[in-house]
Simulated assay, not measured.
Amino acid sequence: MSLSSHLQELKKKHRVLSDAVEEAQRSPGVDDLRVAQLKKQKLKLKEEITRLSPQTMH
């Protein structure tokens, strides 16, 4: 898998988790621990995306 396709896959997973977090926060039956777990997974993906993304020159 190329770096570009790997990044695209990570971004897709991040969007899915983002949607899941939003849905869980709107659902009164979902416990806070589940929301926290989803947010933690989302953050790990974001960190991985940032680490693998080409850095722009300033």
Rank of each mutant, 00 (worst) to 15 (best):
H6D: 11
S5D: 12
K40R: 12
S4D: 13
Q55G: 04
R15V: 05
L33K: 14
A24I: 01
Q37F: 03
H6G: 07
D32E: 15
L43A: 11
R26K: 15
M57F: 09
E22K: 13
A20V: 00
K42G: 01
L17I: 03
L33C: 06
S4V: 07
K44C: 05
L3F: 07
H14S: 11
S53M: 04
L17Y: 05
K46W: 02
V21Q: 02
K11F: 05
Q37G: 05
G29F: 10
L17W: 01
I49W: 01
A36D: 08
K11S: 09
S27E: 13
V16F: 08
S5V: 10
M1W: 10
L52S: 01
K42E: 11
D19I: 06
E48M: 03
E48C: 02
R15Y: 12
K46D: 07
A24Q: 00
Q41S: 09
V30Y: 02
Q55D: 05
K46M: 07
E23Y: 08
D19V: 06
H14N: 10
K42V: 02
D32L: 09
V16Q: 14
Q8W: 04
S53H: 00
L45G: 00
Q25R: 15
T50Y: 10
V35C: 04
A20P: 01
K44Q: 13
G29S: 14
H6F: 14
